[in-house]
Design a protein around this nucleic acid. Structure first.
Lengths: 361, 361
DNA sequence: ATTCTTATCTAAAACGTTTTGAGTCATTAA
DNA sequence: TTAATGACTCAAAACGTTTTAGATAAGAAT
């Protein structure tokens, strides 16, 4: 017994057809803009559909056409708690982009240790058109599962330089390069990187860009000048404390941060130690635009490389839906966005222009 | 052309039936526990299904049975940004409770001015089994829409004392009563309420409980002793500042807060003004258990009425799914949970036991 | 007159499940 | 022996859509 809302029977293709003396097939084609239907009847059909407030039953449609108008997003609870700050903004933007195309979002929060299981489950249920993934890691089990399963998905980020799946990414090497170039131009020679988790692909890219552009400017990159860790204020704070704790010639004069949350901790440490920003230390951070922590609102307004996380949502949706619709040119489904540089007051000319005194930590 | 995952064909009722020499109908009944199927064949079927990793196609199921195994949650973006702190926890708990019963959650973040439109859209698509609502208001348009549309839904909270729809609520009057009783027992006579938004049903209940239990103890409730507003730290702070700003006999010695976020602001104000807690002012707050703001971690650990928001998720899911499954006894689908009282150090005996000096603000 | 187009439409199959109505077969009651 | 019961199973319909493979009719070309 269907517990549906069957007050005032729902219009179907058949009911419209009957009221017009047409077959369901013709009605379907008329509404979906197929060319084999006469203009006169098409207009009649459209008018009747409007009158009866016809809405195609998505379930029936999915059963035959394979498209449900629902996509899935699985977030990892332990991992996401750390990045909770951006979560709501991203979800909300994603939801808006999808709703604009009448697609819905199934959200699953996973506490599972097996990160693939949720995808397996959702895929097997057969209700979804595709998935949106984020935070890919090198050698990501979710991606290889979805690939071999032949599922549609789009990734926010890439887990390697050259991949075969559709993605939207920012140019993370360019992010580092932009920051490093700026600090080098300002005369800095001891530049450190407070990076994100080592196992995430974007961290590796940031690191790579950091190293190569420093080497291009003839700087050495001692291993201690790069620290990986979770993207928390706490982590930024203790990392910066440790960095400032060395001998004078070992202290960085420029710090590149992976996110504004990290930068907040770094700045707190600097201020606590009585360091002048940007006199003693310049800070530049990447900014994903988390509303709770605007870079302009820092004690010393923060110079950033800028690319809002939320601005990735619309392209991601577009790419995924194109893939679902059968758009096959893979080249058109891979986009890389370049970051902007926003100059604020946390960066300035280097006062101490010495090289790293020891590079053999 | 279905763009499905058809590598290594997905098991269907037919394919299982063929491999066993049975009809799809028998397989279906065997798996769904119908009594008309022999125990021997049932075991054979179950084993085969396990081997082939059979998962029922939810779309096909929905088409005939009217159940899709997907429920919807619509959150209001502007409204939710304020309560962002609890959002992730609630979503995550909801998702876990649903997944345990193999049901998925469609999340829609609404920026629409018309709060009913998202429900209308989702309902018309015909893919959902029901909805979970939260934050009902007196005269809530969403509820009346879903009621007249005959949709399944469950509400976290109630928009009136006695309603006809399934809900899970906490006893918000008891919340206030518990807090007021405690403060009265400690000898307080000037007790204020820093309440949530005036247009939400639970705020009205808290207010009601606050007023009646104070009157029962023979206290007057001057209008100025109750303030409504958004549940933010800022709001708590400025409200408390205003309250402490009056003449001595107008200052409350006990403050009841609607949430720990409000309480954080109230405590900040008290500390800033050099007031002793609980000597000069006792603070008791309701605690929804937001992980970012544990009541025990306050500068002065906070006495609270305690009922975790997340603990509402499992009952809500249970109620909704019972309703979807056709459970008809409405009485069994309405639950009210009582709050606990957790005593910490923010409450103590009143030093100043005077009544409100003026009640005609 | 016959065949080919072209334009328009229909009938029927398909998607995978649940459910209805109808069996089949053995066992028991008459 | 026949009928009735009970235990089990199956064929077919149904859900509402899309899509394939015709069907029909009119006009044009042969």
């Amino acid at each position: 017994m269907p517990l549906q809302n069957d007050l005032g029977n729902v219009a179907t293709l058949r009911s419209i057809g009957e009221s017009l003396g047409l077959s369901p097939a013709t009605v379907s084609r008329a509404l979906n803009g197929f060319p084999e239907v006469g203009e006169a009847t098409r207009l009649r059909v459209i008018e009747a559909a409007r009158q009866l407030d016809y809405r195609p039953n998505q379930v029936a449609r999915k059963l035959v056409s394979g498209r449900s108008g629902i996509v899935g997003l699985v977030v990892d609870k332990p991992r996401s708690l750390a990045t909770d700050t951006t979560f709501f903004g991203v979800i909300s933007e994603l939801s808006a982009s999808l709703a604009a195309r009448d697609v819905d979002l199934v959200l699953h929060v996973s506490t599972d240790m097996d990160e693939v299981e949720p995808y397996r489950r959702l895929l097997a249920k057969g209700t979804l058109d595709g998935f949106i993934l984020s935070g890919p890691r090198p050698d990501d089990a979710r991606i290889s599962f979805l690939e071999t399963a032949g599922a549609n998905f789009v990734v926010h980020g890439r887990h390697a330089e050259s991949v075969s799946y559709p993605y939207f990414d920012i140019d993370n090497r360019a992010v580092s390069e932009l920051a490093v170039e700026l600090l080098c131009d300002l005369g800095h020679r001891r530049i450190a990187l407070v990076n994100g988790p080592a196992d995430l692909a974007f961290s590796a890219d940031r690191l790579h860009g950091f190293q190569t552009s420093l080497q291009q400017r003839g700087r050495s990159v001692p291993s201690r000048s790069v620290v990986h860790g979770p993207m928390t204020e706490q982590q930024g704070y203790i990392t910066a404390l440790r960095m400032f704790n060395g001998e004078a010639g070992q202290r960085p004069t420029g710090i590149v941060c992976g996110s504004t949350v990290l930068a907040a901790g770094v700045m707190r440490a600097a201020i606590e130690l009585g360091l002048d920003i940007p006199g003693d230390v310049s800070i530049v951070s990447h900014d994903d635009d988390v509303p709770q922590l605007p870079a302009a609102g820092f004690a010393v307004p923060l110079t950033t490389t800028w690319s809002p996380l939320t601005s990735a949502c619309a392209p991601l949706v577009e790419i995924l839906l194109a893939r679902v619709a059968g758009e096959l040119e893979p080249g058109r489904l891979q986009h890389v966005a370049g970051p902007d540089l926003v100059l604020r007051r946390s960066t300035g000319a280097a006062r101490d222009k010495g090289e790293w005194v020891r590079t053999d930590f």
